[in-house]
């Protein structure tokens, strides 16, 4: 996916790049608000059932979440590095860094899947495997957990698809001018990271 050529409303390429970037940032703003509704719901649950909320959070596998945080932050750093490499004209390095970033993103999903499997066996999946849940705040906590992490995992998948398109089938971006598209994809990947940064203490670290 190379950069689009100059298209109609624009007469200068730099202006068009600024516009693309601004558009992406605004889109990310709307994504923040999308997750915002879930954060709001979590806040309400925590304010209304503080004790149960903390008890539910203590049952979460905080180390799996912690590892996943590290994985995602590292992946983000690699994507930032890939962007720098592309700008410096080092397409090969950029391709490798993006490949590692994608591998880490897949690892994130694998760990997340493992965690879901563990929760399934523990019986804390509302409506499907709820042996340990007896309604009430604990169940609501798990509902929010699955909504938020599930929606986040969808975003991870979307981000991985975009990152994949940066190195396949055409290979990593070579020219400096192609860095804009990669830059926008990187922005999206960092947003996925940002949301997780807040999901982690919200769901795993309330004690």
């Amino acid at each position: 996916m190379s950069e689009r050529a100059l298209h109609d409303p624009f007469t200068r390429l730099d202006r068009q790049r600024e516009a693309d970037r601004l558009g992406m940032l605004l889109f990310l703003g709307s994504e923040v608000m999308l997750f915002g509704g879930l954060f709001a719901a979590a806040m309400v649950l925590r304010l209304q059932h503080s004790h149960d909320y903390i008890a539910a959070s203590k049952e979460m596998h905080y180390w799996l979440g912690g590892i996943n945080t590290a994985v995602l932050l590292t992946s983000s750093a690699l994507v930032a590095g890939a962007l720098e490499a592309t700008r410096a004209g080092r397409a090969r390095l950029s391709g490798w860094l993006l490949g590692f970033a994608i591998a880490l993103g897949l690892a994130f999903l694998a760990i997340k899947g493992t965690e879901y499997a563990i929760e399934w066996r523990e019986g804390v999946v509302p409506r499907f495997s709820d042996a340990k849940l007896h309604g009430g705040p604990h169940e609501l906590f798990m509902v929010l957990y699955f909504c938020a992490t599930g929606l986040h995992a969808l975003h991870v998948t979307g981000g991985l698809t975009l990152l994949g398109m940066m190195i396949w089938p055409k290979g990593a971006a070579r020219a400096e001018r192609e860095a804009t598209t990669l830059g926008n994809v990187a922005l999206y990947w960092h947003l996925v990271d940002l949301i997780w940064i807040f999901l982690y203490p919200t769901l795993y670290l309330a004690r």
């Binding site: 703003g29 608000m33 999308l34 915002g36 509302p126 409506r127 169940e139 909504c147």
Partner: peptide, 24 residues
């Protein structure tokens, strides 16, 4: 840009509540 996504997630939660009876 900033208000519409909140509606989206709210409607999604209502739909989940209706389908699975989860009770948020």
């Amino acid at each position: 840009v900033l208000a519409t996504p909140v509606l989206s997630i709210t409607l999604l939660l209502v739909a989940l509540e209706r389908i699975f009876g989860v009770g948020i």
